[in-house]
Design a protein around this nucleic acid. Structure first.
Lengths: 260, 260
DNA sequence: AAAATGTTTTCCATTGTATGGAAAGGTATA
DNA sequence: TATACCTTTCCATACAATGGAAAACATTTT
């Protein structure tokens, strides 16, 4: 009986799963909790965690008997950030967006069908970051995701939707192609995308796309804040501001908007 | 014949090794190169990489047949950064240090006996980042490392040296306890550490320690630049500046310097 | 103080799974 | 066309990962 699995090498997949569990608990995880959450035997969990630790990907705090994500994971993850080297040049623009709008500014890319927030400049208002860097969201539930999708051909968007489906996160999230395409149309017309509580209830987000030198969407930037603060009358103005910042960043990166 | 584990679960250790290899090649790696570099069979390498990809830790570019670090690695690594939550508050100080000195400003922590650079604000001068974030250095070869060690009891430093040894990286690196302790003494007296080409030849670095609320070293910040630019006459002044910034950051974080 | 509960950690026989060689399927270079 | 080097799949074999059980330890309850 061979190993035909859709998950690859079992022990590796399990270890990576544990790593994800660790990353979901900043306060640390005990062996037995990790075992419970992963569904693995305690001894197996312990062995895998030990292996991760030996390689520096996990860290054990003997005082409190808690496991954490280790430095090596950070080092490896940093390589991913490095490849998306528009992060550093984008920071000044994000900061300015934050200062002008007094809301949180974000930068995200589409990666493996999901929107990944890569960088973030937090609002100085009380609200804490709601989707911290590293977080992933279905593309259709994200302002940045929709802004990027809107640069694609209709057929490609349809194929994407067929492949990934809509994975609505709130009552407002898209759950069908018709309404989504209507939204896409509006995004193309205005030059910016609006996420109206489609990701998290109570949160709005205005996003625009940044182009690569190849004329493809390189990333998107956005401004997000409480719906209560981001009301109709401000949306238009903020949309313009975000779109302008995106255009400037595009220029800075030597990007070009694809021919309409 | 059982599994003698100095490295833990074999397949997991191998997969993590591949991940490190990927992170060392921002331009991407081919299967066969990864196999060569890791010493694994090509088929094994391929299988492990596939597994990493299925879990989002690696990314395959079919166009160019190159493997990269994946988004999940970034997400997991971000958790490590989050735990060291002094990074965000430190950024304004780093930026100011960079602006005042026109050199690169760094923030690092001691983790598993090595100094890990967690954050960095680059000089606007031509020079590219020499030790990018995520990089690790033996503590005694690093200004930040030495600044942190200097806060320990002498006996603890000696024990540390005995355990890890000196792993000199340049001709100037410490390679014995006597000279190292003399250096530590100077660091304590002045309030800042100097790395005089002990990490990379041609590179100097001036570092000071940031204290945690528990009266322990939380992290260190530093300014690094070409030795040619960081000459004797500037060192004293920059040292003061770095030490002052470290003290301000300590205050901001609610930290307290340990009683001398 | 002893017992009960819930850990972490080690051990080991068993079996299932990771392994690498070989071959098939691709894609450039000569 | 042939050559070379690559990626990807297949498969029998043996080795390494597994989970149960028990030991070692910590904390709370009786």
């Amino acid at each position: 009986m061979g190993t035909q699995t859709t998950e690859g090498v079992q022990s590796v997949a399990r270890a990576l799963g544990l790593l994800k569990i660790l990353s979901g608990h900043d306060e640390g995880v005990r062996v037995s909790d990790a075992a419970r959450e992963s569904g693995l035997a305690v001894s197996t969990t312990h062995r895998l965690l030990t292996t991760l630790e030996l390689q520096g990907f996990a860290q054990f705090d003997p005082e409190r008997a808690l496991w954490h994500v280790g430095r090596e994971a950070f080092a490896v993850g940093a390589a991913f950030g490095r490849r998306h080297n528009f992060v550093a040049p984008a920071l000044p623009y994000l900061r300015r967006l934050r200062d002008v709008t007094r809301e949180t500014a974000n930068l995200g890319i589409l990666d493996s069908d999901e929107l990944v927030t890569i960088s973030q400049v937090e609002s100085r208002e009380i609200m804490r970051a709601i989707s911290p860097p590293g977080g992933r969201v279905p593309a259709f539930c994200s302002g940045m995701g929709k802004a990027i999708l809107a640069t694609w051909e209709d057929a490609d968007i349809a194929a994407f939707a067929a492949r990934t489906g809509f994975r609505p996160l709130t009552g407002q999230s898209h759950r069908g192609l018709e309404t989504a395409m209507a939204d896409i149309g509006r995004i193309r017309a205005r030059g910016y995308a609006l996420d109206d509580e489609e990701h998290v209830t109570g949160l709005r987000c205005v996003a625009a796309v940044v182009w690569s030198p190849q004329g493809e969407a390189a990333c998107a930037i956005s401004v997000s804040g409480l719906a209560a603060r981001l009301q109709e009358e401000r949306i238009g103005e903020i949309g313009e501001t975000v779109a302008r910042a995106a255009a400037e960043l595009t220029a800075k990166l030597g990007g070009v908007a694809a021919p309409g």
